[in-house]
Design a protein around this nucleic acid. Sequence first.
RNA 1: GCGCCGAUAGUGUAGUGGUUAUCACCGUGGCUUGCCAAGCCAUGAACUCGGGUUCGAAUCCCGAUCGGCGCACCA
Length: 581
Amino acid sequence: MDMDKYDSVIELAKRRGYLWNSFEIYGGTAGFYDYGPLGAMLKRRVENIWRDIFVINEGYYEIEVPTIGIEDVFVASGHVGGFSDPLTECQKCHESFRADHLVEDVASNPDTLSSDELTAIIKDNNIRCPECEGGLGAVYEFNLMFSTKIGPGSKRVGYLRPETAQGMFVDFPRLLRFYREKLPFGVTQIGKAYRNEISPRQGVIRLREFTQAEAEIFVDPRDKSHPGFASIKEYAVLLYSDPAQSSGQDSVEISLGEAVEQGIIAHQFLAYAVALTHQFLLRVGVSPDRMRFRQHMKDEMAHYAVDCWDAEILSDRFGWVEIVGIADRTDYDLNAHSRVSKTDLSVYVEYAEPRVVERTVVKPNMGKIGPAFKGQAKAVIDALNSMDAKNLSGDAIIVNVGGEEVTLSPDMFEVQQLTETINGENIVPHVIEPSFGIDRIIYAVLEHAFREEDVEGEDEGRIVMGLKSEVAPIQAAVLPLLTRDELKGPAREIESALKQKGVMAAYDDSGTIGRRYRRNDEIGTPYSITVDYDTLEDGTVTIRDRESMKQVRSPVDTIADTVHALVHGHTRFEDAGTPIA
RNA sequence: GCGCCGAUAGUGUAGUGGUUAUCACCGUGGCUUGCCAAGCCAUGAACUCGGGUUCGAAUCCCGAUCGGCGCACCA
């Protein structure tokens, strides 16, 4: 039997309670996965590290909005129109085609036509299957969004959100006020998103329901420098730029300071997001030498985007897989929502120095114009206002009102020279968006942590989930060396001491000590605490390190603090006790 | 969605148109066990689903579902 690494990882994940196919007792459904007890714990820990970085340290507060969105939101975002394609299927060979592409030669505006219209055009023009000349079926819309109805008997359409981002754009006015109307500011959301994929495959890599962690950072379009850029200037990452891809070159390791300077990365804010992403992925356990940042090629980038970088991880079976997208989405989303909702989504930005502007204005004298033109007065004023005041002197003016020339005598208006002080202007911010596919990241963490290795002096090797202790679901196993009451008691006490410290501990006395070590290696438990007869005499226990299989002897009365410090990286294993030969 | 291939205990598997479906690991209870998947006893657990052919189907046929690969689609 040949299992590749993907098979091995998925097999272990299934067996040990990390990942399960959903709805298994009913035969399962493609594109849905359950997180088992250990998987859910791992995912939560990964999400919390993300929160630590983006929410706590960067100050991009987290919000939570409904996973169902109303139609307007996705009309504005373009998902209603752009996320769906009119398809028609050949009745003979059952190949599917884009109906709007097939009618291009006979219809002038194919993308504006409805399914029924497209069906009619195909019929009237006798358009056949391009592959086999077979007849084509009725055109139907395939939209990747799941739709639903809001309210009983209602015709109001709702969609399960295809990304978490839109909720944050929609809340922009509230957020702006929350952040006291100053750029830049950021907001985040971790939550489910849904896409009705045509044929999801590759396990957890492509799901119909998945978890995204997204940040939307609203910045001044004229200033995309980042206040913290100096701190990451020397930070080096592996970049695979558009030019490198086009010319068949390899990715290069380069400092982010240099990357921005050389124009490889468009600006500091993107580079800063790259650094944060890199730090996050390292911290959750993605292998640094199986990670790179790939720039989107010009033609794969959304038309409005300035620059876009994907964090990719190298997987054994699928090659490089995108797990994070970092994009400058410009003002596209805010403008779109502003247009559809008819709401101003701009920020008033004060100038560093107020600007003094000379301006000529014309002020109508209503006391004269009103009686003179009566019902027409409003149109006259509009016409007057539309004129360039600079060209006016004190003479009579002739304006055009509804094709009729009207003369305004000098006493009907006044031309004034004004000196105005302008303190700022309204701008629509640009959006920097790092978007994380949490499920893919979980897979990357599992695959990169997984290893099979030989053990010195033994026939049988071991399987190790080398998870970082910060993400490991079970952080410490507590094991009585032998299944005897006098050892079980103290072990139980250690277990509860650890739990009180917030360390996820699991007591285990089944089988032999060796078996328990191996079982914990496989689920990724970083430390095992073993109670033996010396514990009863001298008050020490054994701490075993998963990675090295080495052991130290450590006092039992401080064991909870010691293990807590180990798990959170405050103590090195060698310093946790006295080594055992 | 199309094409090819596959589906047997929790996991990995053997096998067959006809008795009680193989093996290993695994789980559980017990004995044993002084630090890396030891041993012993007992015990638990499967032919993906639906239809057809047949005296008889887990085995053959058809369909569905799920999974893998290729094509198409894809943030």
